[in-house]
């Protein structure tokens, strides 16, 4: 069993990165890998409440994030600095995302067996 850390760097909806990263996260977890998610840069925008992407003609894949606990993905992190840069309150993020400092993110990346960036 390996530990995979999946990093989300892109804003949701405008590209397929987030969706395809999330697909991989759930699939890996169903293969009983240890999966951690880290949202950084504009990727933290996945964690804003009350998004309705169907209004802009894309599938609401973010709703799938609600299923993370069912897949035993319990470690969800967000870059605190990225939240601040985008005027998001790190305490108000969805899916129990925990804010991390840059050096804590580096630490997470160094302990993972593999890191996949989306």
């Amino acid at each position: 069993m390996k530990s995979l850390t999946i990093l989300f760097r892109h804003a949701p909806h405008s590209t397929a990165h987030g969706r395809e990263g999330l697909d991989l996260a759930l699939l890996s977890a169903s293969f009983e890998q240890t999966v951690r998610l880290i949202f950084v840069d504009e990727g933290v925008l996945h964690l804003i409440d009350n998004q309705d992407s169907e209004l802009i003609g894309t599938k609401d894949y973010i709703a799938t994030l609600k299923a993370l606990p069912l897949y035993d993905i319990e470690e969800v992190y967000a870059c605190q600095q990225s939240c601040m840069d985008l005027s998001l309150d790190p305490a108000a993020l969805r899916f129990n995302a925990q804010p991390l400092l840059a050096k804590e993110i580096s630490q997470q990346l160094s302990v993972a067996n593999e890191v996949l960036v989306f």
């Binding site: 995979l4 991989l24 699939l27 890998q33 593999e114």
Partner: peptide, 11 residues
């Protein structure tokens, strides 16, 4: 193939 083949490949 499927993403499963990526995961087993990583493994």
């Amino acid at each position: 193939g499927g993403l499963g083949e990526l995961v087993t490949g990583i493994e």
